[in-house]
Structures are given as C-alpha cells and as structure tokens.
Amino acid sequence: MKVLLVDDSKAARFAMGKLLKDQGLEVEMAASGEEALDKIATEAIDIVFMDQSMPGMGGIAATTAITSNEKNRTYPGSTLHRQ
C-alpha cells in the first residue's frame, strides 16, 4: 500500500514516515498542500495522511481539492476527518 504523508514539519515527516515504513507501507512525502496535489495527480496513492495546519495551502483546503476531483472519489472515506 502506498501512503502519502503531508506535513510541513520535516521532523514530523521523518518520525511518522519511519512508523509507517516499519508497518510495511511504501511512503511518499510532501511538505505542503500544493506538493500533495502534484503527487496525487502523478502517482498512484492509496491513502493520504494530511497535516491540518500548514503555510500556504493547508490540509483542509488540500483535502477539499483532492476529494472534489472526480477521479479521486474512489479513495475510501473521501471525506474530511479531523484529529
């Protein structure tokens, strides 16, 4: 399973990425909402872990943009879930 981890914090990406990789997942990373949209458009991603608060395009706006695209409606639970 290929995971996209989106967080503006390099330390958070590193720590969460390690945890996900230790579970046998393939992990792609993005440092912003804009970068996440680019990766979603060009790569086959199974699940996205999105930071809510980031400079520029935050997690809520990026998630809305991802789920408003018809081709992304196949993501399980393609509604916004907040922690």
Rank of each mutant, 00 (worst) to 15 (best):
G24V: 01
D46F: 05
D38L: 04
L25T: 06
V6P: 02
V3Q: 08
G33S: 03
D51Q: 11
D51W: 10
Q52E: 11
D46Y: 09
L5I: 05
Q23Y: 10
A31S: 14
V48C: 10
L19H: 15
S9M: 01
V27S: 02
M29C: 14
Q52G: 07
A31E: 14
I47K: 12
D22L: 06
D38A: 03
I45Q: 04
V3M: 06
D7H: 12
R13V: 11
A11M: 13
L37I: 02
L25Y: 15
D22Q: 15
Q52M: 14
A30P: 14
D7P: 12
E28I: 02
K39E: 00
V6E: 04
F49P: 09
K18I: 10
E28Y: 05
V3S: 03
A12V: 15
A12M: 13
I40E: 01
G24R: 06
V27M: 04
D46Q: 12
G17T: 11
K10F: 09
R13T: 12
K10W: 00
A11H: 07
L37H: 07
A12C: 12
T42N: 11
G17P: 09
M16F: 15
K18C: 05
A12F: 12
G24A: 09
L37P: 12
R13I: 13
V48A: 05
L4Y: 07
A30D: 12
A44I: 05
V6D: 01
D7F: 09
L37F: 03
L19V: 13
K18A: 11
V6F: 03
E35Q: 11
A15Q: 15
K39I: 09
K39C: 00
L37G: 04
E26G: 04
K21M: 05
Q52Y: 09
E43W: 08
Q23R: 13
I40R: 01
L19T: 12
D51H: 11
K10Y: 04
A41P: 06
A44P: 04
F49W: 13
M29G: 11
M50W: 01
A36S: 01
I47R: 15
I45F: 07
A44C: 08
Q52C: 15
D22W: 10
M50C: 07
V27K: 03
S32T: 05
V27I: 03
I40A: 00
T42V: 01
D38H: 04
Q52V: 15
A41Q: 11
D46W: 07
L4Q: 02
D7L: 08
L37V: 02
A12K: 03
K18H: 15
F14V: 02
I47Q: 07
V48Q: 09
E26L: 01
D38N: 05
R13C: 12
Q23M: 08
D8I: 04
D51F: 08
E26H: 03
V3G: 01
A44K: 13
